[in-house]
Design a protein around this nucleic acid. Structure first.
Lengths: 123, 123, 123, 123
DNA sequence: GTGGTCTAGACCACC
DNA sequence: GTGGTCTAGACCACA
């Protein structure tokens, strides 16, 4: 996995974990990779994964069973969506609107690009 | 002015300055507020505004006339638009698409919200 | 049985065992549940119960008869009480006092809650 | 400052910070010691203080002004009290009741000890 | 095996 | 000066 420069790695990993849960790759109720496993896989320091898991535990997306590992919580999907939606509505959408207004981009053009995007990424 | 937590203040001020130029509030060829004036108005440390002006000067959006102050350059509008467009297409739009896809938000809903946004901000 | 997050499970089980002995549910001289039985009942790993029993054995609250099982010792009650009292006086009581002082809770209110507690738990 | 063994240092520091705010030693709205200052004073690694401040920031007891430092929030007192009260009612009080019941300690005795405690600690 | 904590030290952006 | 992040490495309790 490659990390962008403009966001903390532990947050990018949090996004990675969240999407894996959201897309069903890491099913609800099942154990997710251990700190060490994920650290090896993503080639980061275990402490960085610890931070990610702490962060997601605070948000009740994952929960710890002592001595066993972390699990996706029953309402992980709701939690992930609600956090994501809040950030989207409060931060990204206003910025998006400001940009298409100031740059004079039509929503039709956006719609066309969206079709391309879906074909490339989620077909 | 309130600042978001996830972006450096000097960059948020750069956006603020750019929009004022773009919207004609600070016309091309006229002096823009001095570092001190803007610092007082936005309630930030003058050094932070200095950094903003340096940043915009590097991008040739504003220029300094010694002893007088800063002015929007003749091609400020193009500069601002080109930088903004690049960031929009490369960074914000993919993220925007990923979000409306995962959050299952329709472009129709976006369009409705856009009307509200324009009425509130740019009428 | 539900376990709190801030104390090791094996210690919480030790408290559970101690209280059963103290309250006469597991009489002195009679066999207490085997490691496996208790592990099944409490839904924990047998090793965890092993640890509990080791812990209580060290404190001479229970004793092992080879091939038969564990029994509450003759002076189990005294042992339990003395350990409990020591921890209570040295650790819990000062913390309790600091809390009711800082939170401005009266001893009258505590007394009222105590009546409710007794009715719910030990009637 | 000396640290107990049975609780994470960063949490003990969080308690220390909270009490300083609660008792008015670090007034609301004013800057609290920087990470480095507090680390030196308490003789711990700066990272440990970072953890404390992160923890308290999550609970909205303190807030960060970028490049300046941390401040006690306007509702720090409420936050501290509500967290403390919740833990007290859910964890410590039931344990306290169980102990005085099982150890056969009267509330009158508790009241007497409380007077002594207040004289020693908060006069 | 699991996670939790702490130290040490480094680099960075930001104000 | 401020905090934020990351790495490295260690030790520990726990299941």
């Amino acid at each position: 996995m490659e990390f962008r420069d403009n966001e903390a790695i532990y947050l990018q990993i949090a996004g990675f974990v969240s999407e894996n849960i959201m897309l069903g790759k890491w099913p609800i109720g099942q154990k997710i990779p251990s700190v060490r496993e994920l650290a090896v896989e993503l080639q980061v320091n275990p402490n960085t994964v610890v931070r990610t898991y702490e962060f997601l535990q605070n948000r009740e997306v994952i929960a710890n069973k002592r001595g066993i590992g972390f699990f996706a919580t029953d309402n992980a999907l709701e939690k992930i969506k609600s956090y994501r939606k809040e950030r989207f509505l409060k931060q990204e959408l206003p910025e998006f609107f400001r940009n298409i207004y100031l740059l004079n981009i039509s929503l039709d053009e956006i719609a066309n690009r969206f079709e391309d995007f879906k074909n490339e990424n989620f077909k």
